[in-house]
Design a protein around this nucleic acid. Structure first.
Lengths: 136, 136
DNA sequence: TTCTTGACTTGGACGAAGTCCATCGTAGGA
DNA sequence: TCCTACGATGGACTTCGTCCAAGTCAAGAA
């Protein structure tokens, strides 16, 4: 995420204070905020920012491939800024904490030809579930 | 799913026409309906059935372990009656079609100890994505 | 068979998450 | 500095799901 703002400017993104704040909120590892949480944190720095703007900006970041949508925890979508580093997710069944993890092996290769139904398989998303040390 | 009704009766479930119709709608392989679709199909056979009853019944079937919730496609949850046969999902990025698939290998074993953050990992859900023959 | 009762169903209100749109504001080039 | 097209705003709206009070009925008892 570090030079996200630079990359976005390079792509011709018009830089506004709202977009800057949203991008800054989405920084760090193991960050998986809901749109509402992003709005809350952004509003702490820029009180007038509207919900619609947060949704618009998140949608654009996803379209640009800078942020991933994760829908494995709870009802609301979560936004993962760690898009440039391929990874999977480990979720605590107790408290909902999410960690980025990196399994070894080739999960796509593990799907036999006769189980592909003629699909051109391009990716696989994995969600590991279990109890974190605090909840166990 | 075949003898679902018998199993439910065995567990002391009170059998009503509404529950019977919902269970019958959720029958077959590669079935992944939304609650709304279940309601639509159930109402074709039993016009007075209410949305709340469909949600209640689906929730109970999930609690009993007879049906799985799948949240990998679109906004609404989908209900998968194939709960007694462990499997993963293959989703078409074009039309949203979902197939049940059975990868080989041990995905849980593929998560290294140092990537587990002390979690007791119990299960893994995998979603393969690609284009189906019709969409390719 | 009829009675009884508690579990089940109903529909409408409610709530959370997300989208849409007309209008206003402003970043950044001329 | 001025213009203007792109972005922000906020309120209405949609979708998906939950809750609740009141009415209904499956299934065991007599």
């Amino acid at each position: 995420m570090s030079d996200l703002l630079g990359r976005l400017r390079g792509r011709g993104w018009r830089m506004t204070s709202q977009r800057r704040v949203v991008a800054e909120v989405l920084d760090g590892d193991h960050v998986h905020l809901t749109a509402d949480e992003v709005h809350l944190r952004a509003a702490a720095r820029l009180p007038e920012i509207s919900r619609a703007t947060v949704y618009n900006t998140l949608g654009e970041l996803v379209a640009l491939g800078e942020v991933l949508e994760v829908s494995t925890v709870g009802r609301a979508k979560r936004y993962d800024p760690n898009a440039r580093n391929p990874h999977q997710h480990l979720v605590c069944s107790g408290c909902g904490t999410v960690r980025d993890v990196h399994p070894v092996g080739n999960a796509i290769g593990d799907l036999p030809e006769e189980e592909r139904f003629g699909f051109a398989v391009g990716s696989v998303e994995m969600t590991y579930r279990g109890l974190c040390p605090a909840c166990a």
